[in-house]
Design a binder for these strands. Structure first.
Length: 172
DNA sequence: CGAATGATCCGA
DNA sequence: CGGATCATTCGA
């Protein structure tokens, strides 16, 4: 699964507050050992272990003492690589949510109620899944540099993809 | 622009 | 063990 293919797909979570669903509209690719900005750059640690596991699982981490971020692991078992879910449009289960309630990686996990306990889940057949949906037409997809990174050599590469003019995108 | 807020990881 | 860092967010 590649970052581009994740756009438009539906994230579905059957949690304690019922079923919540959203359309993925913003992602960022992290390439693992070859990517200085990736958590996996310095090798396997307890936290990053899911990134080195089989594809199609979740990698959730806790950052800034406040927020969680959700990734989809993309590479074969033993090879690190993941796609960060940065923004989505609420579809169901978010009662009275503003259109931008999921616009940002921390906002997305907060609205879904996802935490570190949701790391390393099978995203095909667990309570947290990614479902196929009509693909986003190429003309609706934009690219940019990744957001929030420090002093990395790869920062400028256009590895952030998002759906143009979507209210679920964190930043245009 | 900077505070909030705590797990994680590296180096000593 | 200590402290720098951090794939963020919100409000002044």
């Amino acid at each position: 699964m590649v970052a581009r293919d994740l756009l438009g797909k539906v994230l579905l979570y059957d949690g304690p507050s019922g079923r919540r669903a959203a359309r993925i509209v913003e992602v960022e690719a992290y390439l693992g050992r070859a990517d200085p900005a990736s958590h996996a750059y310095r090798g396997l640690t307890p936290r990053t272990a899911p990134m080195f596991g089989p594809p199609g699982r979740s990698y959730v981490y806790f950052v800034y003492g406040m927020y969680h971020c959700l990734n989809v692991v993309t590479e074969r078992d033993g090879v690190a690589g993941a796609v960060l879910l940065r923004g989505a449009e609420p579809l169901a289960g978010f009662d009275d949510a503003e259109p931008d309630a999921l616009a940002g990686p921390g906002k997305l996990t907060r609205a879904f109620g996802l935490t570190i306990e949701h790391t390393n889940l099978d995203l095909v057949r667990s309570i947290l899944t990614v479902r196929d949906a009509p693909p986003v037409p190429p003309r609706r997809v934009a690219r940019s540099a990744r957001i929030g990174l420090n002093d990395h050599a790869t920062t400028h590469k256009p590895w952030r993809l998002y759906v143009r003019r979507s209210s679920g995108v964190s930043r245009p």
